[in-house]
């Protein structure tokens, strides 16, 4: 009974963090898409240009480091060194987004490779330029193929966003732990936070699944 009261009392404060968490996730997804998609395209179609080695190192670096170390490196190290004073939220969103861009570039690379390369030749022989063929022939198919794997980035980012707790972003876990130090009742509050995360995960996945069905072309490969 007392637990219910504590949850009821603290929940508005914790739930307010939902906006911060969602803000982190959506910004990171957008940054990841905006950076990851060009990287994937360059890796496939300009594979032996001078970009390929830096991109490979970028991906290896961002995939090989724990997000906690990346957060500390950017928040305490790189940004202050460059003289940029960003609030923790933007650092968190930027780090999660860049990290996601490394993963997303590989998702898009795989999806582009799974489009039959004869189509590229056909488009070129019809007089399309390479960027034009990529934009109008390859990507509309590749993005549909990538969608199921891409939707997996949502739960990954959602769960990883709580790591921003370590640099003091006021997302749900930070708020929950503040409420815990106020009420000294860890059991109901952390469990309630976990439940909120699970519900958000479920809702997001439902939306993405329906998007997959929406964009699916009948008779076309993929799921």
């Amino acid at each position: 009974m007392q637990n219910a009261l504590i949850i009821l009392e603290s929940l508005p404060n914790i739930a307010w963090g939902l906006f911060t968490t969602l803000g982190l996730v959506i910004t990171a997804l957008a940054v990841g898409l905006a950076v990851g998609l060009p990287l994937g395209v360059i890796q496939v179609y300009w594979g032996n240009s001078l970009f390929s080695r830096p991109i490979a190192i970028y991906v290896w670096f961002l995939r090989g480091l724990p997000s906690l170390v990346l957060l500390f490196l950017f928040y305490y190290g790189l940004f202050p060194l460059l003289g940029v004073d960003l609030p923790p939220f933007f650092v968190g969103a930027a780090v999660l987004g860049l990290r996601s861009s490394a993963y997303q570039s590989q998702i898009f690379r795989g999806a582009i490779l799974s489009v039959d390369q004869g189509q590229m030749q056909a488009a070129r022989s019809l007089g399309m330029s390479k960027p034009c063929a990529i934009e109008n022939v390859i990507l509309p198919q590749a993005l549909r193929i990538a969608l199921p794997a891409w939707s997996n980035e949502y739960p990954i980012l959602l769960t990883d966003s709580s790591v921003c707790y370590a640099i003091g972003v006021m997302e749900m876990l930070t708020r929950a732990s503040l409420q815990v130090s106020r009420t000294r009742a860890p059991v109901p509050l952390y469990l309630a936070t976990a439940v909120i995360f699970i519900i958000m995960n479920y809702i997001g996945m439902r939306i993405l699944r329906s998007a997959e069905r929406r964009f699916h072309i009948p008779g076309f490969g993929g799921s």
Partner: peptide, 8 residues
């Protein structure tokens, strides 16, 4: 899978 590892 739905809970962040940190919360776990």
């Amino acid at each position: 899978k739905g809970t962040p590892l940190l919360i776990l």
